[in-house]
Design a protein around this nucleic acid. Sequence first.
DNA 1: CTAATTCACTTGCAATTTGCAAGTTAATTT
DNA 2: AAATTAACTTGCAAATTGCAAGTGAATTAG
Lengths: 137, 137
Amino acid sequence: MPDRRSPCPIAFALDLFGDRWTLLVVRDMALKGKSHFHEFENAGEGIATNILADRLKLLVEYGVVEKARDPEKGSRRIYRLTEKGLDLLPVLLEMIVWSGKHDPETGVSADYLDRATRRRQSMLRDLRAAARTVDER
Amino acid sequence: MPDRRSPCPIAFALDLFGDRWTLLVVRDMALKGKSHFHEFENAGEGIATNILADRLKLLVEYGVVEKARDPEKGSRRIYRLTEKGLDLLPVLLEMIVWSGKHDPETGVSADYLDRATRRRQSMLRDLRAAARTVDER
DNA sequence: CTAATTCACTTGCAATTTGCAAGTTAATTT
DNA sequence: AAATTAACTTGCAAATTGCAAGTGAATTAG
């Protein structure tokens, strides 16, 4: 881990995910049921493989993600969020709410936004449960 | 504004504040009552002045911050959050909660964390009200 | 059992961004 | 008029990013 800049919790968070890519990988795991390298690679934003490999390594070092051999296919690795990683769901959700409100072209339905603000706790519970069950979404 | 990478709301948010400094400046305005260049400069993390100037300019371009001449001292400028900027408070709060829970050395009291999770709405209301009143904190 | 393929990376290098230190400029105070 | 304050700007070295191509371990195909 790089050295921390200050005792500030926001600075601590940014030391991990204060860049353009890290949270997109977390998003793919937390919200899109993705778990393999090539899935993150083809997520849509076009991350370079060297950057992706680097971010996955950092996420593992920080204890946000764990890496394992895929039991169904040994040439594959599986990446999944730890509890610490799942705890980032509220951060992701608030980012979605913010963009949903302020970005005219963002892909968030009014329904989703409504639920995220008015029934936040239940939504977070559901998202967490869904994220634990890695499947197609 | 740089071109957006995808219609994803998280990617949109990261296009603005996906770096190590932007949210620290927002933090200073939203949570610490700061409004002048030199205050951000001396915030503790040691941001370089060229980076600070650049981020302030971007924040203004994005409509998150507005810049004005300081009526009390014309050589100063005042930076303050717009409504769009104040709407980042929930994101900041969730980052604080995450670090407070997972960073053993973070400077967040158990009391603060407790309030942030159990009485979130009221805390956000208070933070917003406080952030509108720019004063010493 | 050998050859092709899949998948997860690594490497080399150019381009962009960051960070440091030293200006510069405009407004105020002395 | 000269010194000071405050907000930047500039030049350059160092670090990070991004692109394209390559490597190596495991799996499947023939």
